[in-house]
Simulated scan of single mutants.
Amino acid sequence: MQTLQVGVLGGSGFTGLELLRRLRRHPRVRVVFATARQPDAVGTRQFPGPWRTPEEALSDSVDWVFSCLPHGESARWVAAWADRGARVIDLSGDFRFPTPELYTAWYGMPHPCPERLAEAVLVLPEWNAEAARDRRIIANPGCYPTAVWLAVLPVVRAGLIEARPIVVDAKSGVTGAGRTPTERTHFVGVQENFTVYSAGRRHRHVGEIEHYLEAWTGTPSHILFTAGLLPVRRGLMVTAYAALRSGATARTVWSCLAEAYAGRPFVRVRPLGEVPALHDVVGTNRCDVGVVEADETGWVVLVAALDNLLKGASGQAIQTMNLLMGWDETLGLPVEGGDG
C-alpha cells in the first residue's frame, strides 16, 4: 500500500491545524513536516510536528504539499515545491484566477508569480477533478464559492435559472476570518452580535464565483453578494435567490440537483422544502443543499451549508488529493457527524 509523504505550509492557523488533524488520521498519508514562522506559535502546541520554518522544510522530500499560507505569500512557495517535483494544493487565493489581471482586479495587488498561472488549475472535486490529472499546481476553491457553486452550478448549466443576477446572502463563523484577531473578530465584537461586511460586489470571492460559473457552464453571471460574520466558531451558510426561467419550477430545480449529486458522498440534497442547519454539517466534509419553493414569485431559493474549515478548505483539499490518487474520495474524511 502506497504511503504518501506530505508537508503542510502554514500549519499553525485554523485551516492548517484542521488539515494536519485530518492528514494525521489518513490511512495512506505520513506528515513529514508542518511550517510556522514562529516556533512558539499557538498552533504549534496543538500538533506534535515536526515543525519547521518554510526555508528549513525545503530540505525534506515529500510527494504532496498543502499550502495554507496567506495569499501573496503562498505563490512563491507553491512554485518552489512544484519545481522540486511535488504536487501542490494551494488553499490561498494565489492560483484561483487564470490571469494576473483578474487576480489584481480582485486582490488589489500584482500577482507574485504570474508566469506560473498557466500551470495551475482550480478544482471543485464534484465538478472538474479530472482537469488536474496531470497538473502539479492545484488551487483549492474558497469557502463561499464552494457553497454557491454546489448550489447553483447544475441548475445554471441546465438553464433552469437566470444567472444575471443571482443574489447571495452568505454567513460564516469566526474561523473563516483567520487566526489573527481584529476589532471585528475579537470576542467582544462578535459575541451577541452580527455584522455584515463586503456588501454588494466588494468581496473578492465574487470574482471567483462569476469567473468559474461562466467557464464551467458557458453562462455569464452577475453575483450580488453580502457576507456576514456569525458569532460561532465554524460553519458557513449561503442563501441564493435566483429568477426561474420559463417552464422551470422549484421542483425541477430540486430534481436537477438530486440527479447531479446522486452517488456523491459529500453533497446531500435535502428533500424539497427542507433546508440545512449549521449543526448538520459542522465537523463533516459535506455540503447540504436545500431548495425552497416560491414559484408564485417567479424565483427560487437555494440554501447551502458546510463547514468552512473542512468542505470549505482543508477537507476539500484532501478530497481532491484522494481523487487524483485514484483513491476513494472519502478516505480520511468525515461524511457523517455534525456539531464538530
Results as ranks from 00 to 15, higher is better:
residue 143 C to M: 05
residue 142 G to K: 07
residue 130 E to S: 04
residue 121 V to H: 04
residue 137 I to W: 02
residue 137 I to V: 11
residue 116 R to D: 05
residue 138 I to G: 04
residue 133 R to C: 04
residue 141 P to I: 09
residue 121 V to F: 02
residue 140 N to W: 01
residue 126 E to W: 09
residue 114 P to S: 12
residue 129 A to S: 14
residue 111 H to P: 00
residue 142 G to S: 09
residue 108 G to Y: 00
residue 114 P to N: 05
residue 143 C to H: 12
residue 114 P to A: 06
residue 121 V to M: 04
residue 117 L to S: 03
residue 116 R to G: 03
residue 108 G to H: 06
residue 108 G to W: 04
residue 129 A to E: 07
residue 110 P to E: 12
residue 113 C to Q: 13
residue 135 R to P: 13
residue 130 E to L: 03
residue 123 V to P: 03
residue 111 H to D: 10
residue 125 P to V: 11
residue 107 Y to M: 15
residue 119 E to A: 11
residue 138 I to E: 01
residue 137 I to S: 03
residue 138 I to V: 12
residue 107 Y to T: 01
residue 109 M to K: 08
residue 107 Y to N: 07
residue 140 N to Q: 00
residue 142 G to C: 07
residue 117 L to C: 03
residue 141 P to S: 07
residue 121 V to D: 11
residue 126 E to C: 08
residue 129 A to F: 05
residue 142 G to P: 09
residue 136 R to M: 09
residue 137 I to D: 05
residue 113 C to W: 01
residue 139 A to L: 07
residue 119 E to C: 05
residue 129 A to M: 03
residue 118 A to K: 12
residue 132 A to S: 13
residue 109 M to S: 10
residue 112 P to S: 11
residue 138 I to P: 02
residue 118 A to I: 02
residue 114 P to L: 13
residue 137 I to Q: 06
residue 136 R to I: 05
residue 112 P to W: 02
residue 130 E to R: 05
residue 132 A to W: 12
residue 115 E to T: 01
residue 126 E to P: 08
residue 132 A to E: 06
residue 121 V to G: 00
residue 119 E to P: 00
residue 142 G to V: 13
residue 138 I to R: 01
residue 133 R to S: 09
residue 115 E to G: 01
residue 107 Y to A: 07
residue 122 L to T: 10
residue 130 E to G: 11
residue 139 A to C: 10
residue 128 N to H: 03
residue 114 P to V: 04
residue 109 M to N: 01
residue 131 A to C: 09
residue 124 L to I: 15
residue 141 P to W: 00
residue 111 H to L: 05
residue 136 R to T: 12
residue 121 V to E: 14
residue 139 A to Y: 02
residue 114 P to F: 06
residue 110 P to L: 01
residue 136 R to P: 02
residue 126 E to G: 10
residue 111 H to R: 10
residue 143 C to L: 10
residue 124 L to Q: 15
residue 117 L to V: 01
residue 127 W to H: 04
residue 109 M to C: 04
residue 133 R to I: 04
residue 122 L to H: 00
residue 115 E to R: 09
residue 136 R to D: 10
residue 125 P to W: 12
residue 133 R to V: 03
residue 128 N to P: 07
residue 134 D to M: 04
residue 110 P to K: 07
residue 140 N to I: 00
residue 135 R to A: 09
residue 110 P to I: 08
residue 128 N to D: 03
residue 144 Y to G: 00
residue 144 Y to W: 09
residue 112 P to E: 13
residue 135 R to T: 01
residue 121 V to P: 15
residue 124 L to M: 14
residue 107 Y to I: 02
residue 134 D to E: 15
residue 126 E to Y: 14
residue 113 C to M: 08
residue 109 M to A: 12
residue 114 P to K: 12
residue 129 A to L: 04
residue 115 E to W: 13
residue 109 M to E: 13
residue 113 C to E: 14
residue 117 L to Y: 10
residue 129 A to I: 06
residue 110 P to D: 11
residue 122 L to R: 04
residue 119 E to S: 10
residue 140 N to F: 00
residue 110 P to V: 09
residue 134 D to N: 14
residue 129 A to P: 03
residue 144 Y to P: 01
residue 128 N to C: 08
residue 121 V to A: 12
residue 110 P to Y: 10
residue 143 C to V: 06
residue 113 C to V: 14
residue 117 L to M: 10
residue 108 G to K: 02
residue 142 G to I: 05
residue 137 I to F: 07
residue 143 C to Q: 14
residue 144 Y to H: 11
residue 109 M to D: 06
residue 120 A to W: 11
residue 117 L to H: 08
residue 141 P to E: 01
residue 111 H to F: 06
